[in-house]
Nucleic acid binder design. Structure first.
Length: 495
RNA sequence: GUCGGUGUAGUUCAAUGGUAGAACGGGGGACUCAUAAGCCUCAAACGAUGGUCCGAUUCCAUCCAUCGACACCA
């Protein structure tokens, strides 16, 4: 039997569209995907972890021109910014970073197009575009009010006829519903799955997947038609397979998309349709296997559930947070304090409160507390028996915490972390109850035994933290191993 | 408008057909190993109105509030 088939894992984030600076939503998605990637690695899986930047399309083209740059200069700058953010967030350094302007991606997207075309799912059609002379912009139906531009209700919309390529999305309704039926956990959480099922059941309409190059040249050229470019998201979605070598390196592709049982995709709720319906239809159209799981994040909002925006001034900038509180503090917050699936409010004040309560007063203080006693009374535990074993045999170690594992397998990162913080509380209580700091004077032997138990428990806590707060976890394990008190508090209280 | 979700202490979240749990924040206390941290303790909530039931926060209906979906927004 081929056991190796079971221990490969492919996870990807959505590629952020680089028309603005990275925000909390991006940070949240990167960090969560990173946690799952790290967890799987610890569980002995061979992991491919993908992220990158989505760089084509009208918005970027316009922005670049506005700032007096070429689109390439503009996207180079933003790709750099996102790469920088990944570092700041402590994302696994071996993460793959794909840009949709990469040469191999461009080739792959064109091949993908050709394959869909060859299979009969792409056709050319006249497309009517509504154009408002007042705005000098094309308008979609959903933007219109009573069939007029809301900003210029007195001007009649012009209809512009344009020839575009279309994708036969309508051909995939039954196939998608059938696929959903057979994969009852395909979209997490379930209420998002219901949403997309309802959407597909209502019926699907073909959609345009190209743009006239004369109007918008910043895209990948449609194979065999130099007058059109591939519409940005059709090109962007293909990154998930171009990143793993399709079609030039089929061995690599098979390893990550076939032998893994499919990719796991993290995305925001605004991407539900593209990832769980359109992309799946595209894969079927190209004769490729579907994704395994789509995990949908909620949004980070301002206080009271209001959308974050510069004009309201309620934006919480992840880079600024990291500067003030550190990488693991941000990781902690997006993993435990933000709901895994629902929208959650976040303000700087809320961040600070959670930081002080759970990292400074909670985890950080506990480490100082235990290690201070351990060093003062010269009590230690053998690193071969504890610290080293955790790292060497994490699978066995985590086997002892069944709920932790169950939560992570279901992408419920918050609940897994709650388990750890329960342990932190319990250990604090136990120190209070056993009072080794008093007992050491009257019953040295028993005090030392208590303290050893506490060191073991602290080791277990650090072991559990490994995928979430890797840097902190390593620090704690190191302190236990060396039997040292932290020179500086792990998380300094902020007031 | 249609469909769906949600509405629980000051705040952020749980659970449940039969005395509603927690965390943060607030009040009080005993301690001292620790980052004026930790521990113990107190106060504090089921949107509204009807209905089913011996009994509803939980089920149903209506209303109010709020969020989302209803396709070309990456």
């Amino acid at each position: 039997m081929d056991n190796t088939k079971l221990n490969k894992f492919y996870i990807t984030t959505t590629l952020p569209y680089v028309n603005s600076n990275p925000h909390m939503g991006h940070a949240l998605e990167f960090v969560r995907a990173d946690v799952i990637a790290r967890y799987k690695k610890l569980m002995g899986f061979d992991v491919f972890f993908n992220t990158g930047t989505d760089e084509h399309g009208q918005k970027i083209y316009t922005k670049a021109l506005e700032t007096g740059q070429t689109p390439q200069e503009y996207t180079d700058f933003y790709a750099g910014k996102f790469k920088e953010l990944l570092k700041l967030l402590g994302i696994s350094p071996d993460v793959n970073f794909i840009r949709t302007t990469d040469e191999n991606h461009i080739k792959s997207a064109q091949e993908f197009w050709k394959t869909c075309d060859k299979n009969g799912y792409i056709y050319k059609k006249n497309y009517q575009v509504k154009y408002c002379v007042g705005c000098e912009l094309e308008k979609s139906d959903s933007e219109l009010v009573n069939g007029k531009c809301p900003d210029h209700p007195n001007i009649e919309l012009e209809i512009i006829e344009e020839e575009n390529y279309f994708f036969k999305f309508s051909a995939f309704q039954d196939k998608l519903l059938d696929f959903y039926e057979k994969n009852p956990d395909f979209v997490i959480p379930d209420f998002r799955f219901n949403e997309i099922k309802a959407f597909v059941k209502r019926g699907l309409t073909d959609f345009s997947i190209s743009r006239l190059k004369s109007k918008m040249p910043w895209g990948i050229e449609v194979p065999g038609d130099e007058n059109q470019v591939i519409y940005v998201w059709f090109d962007a979605l293909v990154n998930y397979i171009s990143a793993i070598g399709w079609p030039s390196d089929m061995e690599k592709f098979n390893k990550w998309q076939v032998e893994t049982g499919g990719m796991v995709q993290y995305c925001g709720k605004d991407n539900l349709r593209q990832q769980s319906a359109m992309w799946q239809a595209m894969l079927i159209a190209a004769g490729l296997p579907n994704s395994k799981t789509i995990v949908i994040d909620g949004f980070v909002t301002g206080a009271g559930g209001v959308k974050m925006s510069k004009s309201i001034g309620n934006v919480v900038d992840p880079v600024e947070i990291i500067k003030d509180f550190g990488t693991d503090a941000l990781r902690y917050y997006v993993l435990r304090e933000l709901s895994p699936f629902e929208d959650t409010p976040c303000t700087k004040e809320m961040f600070k409160d959670a930081y002080n309560a759970n990292l400074a007063n909670g985890l950080g203080n506990l480490v100082s507390r235990v290690m201070k006693m351990a060093t003062n009374y010269s009590v230690s535990i053998s690193s071969e028996d504890y610290v080293d074993i955790i790292k060497k045999d994490w699978i066995k170690f985590i086997e002892l915490s069944s709920s932790y594992k169950t939560f992570l397998e279901g992408y419920n990162i918050k609940m897994a972390m709650d388990d750890i913080w329960i342990r932190i509380s319990k250990l604090n209580e136990s120190i209070q109850e056993k009072q080794p700091f008093k007992k050491i004077k009257i019953n040295k032997e028993e005090a030392e035994k208590d303290l050893k138990d506490m060191l073991i428990e602290l080791t277990i806590i650090a072991g559990h933290l490994l995928p979430f707060l890797p840097e902190t976890s390593e620090k704690i394990l190191e302190l236990i191993k060396e039997n040292k008190t932290p020179e500086k508090p792990l998380f300094l209280r902020v007031d």
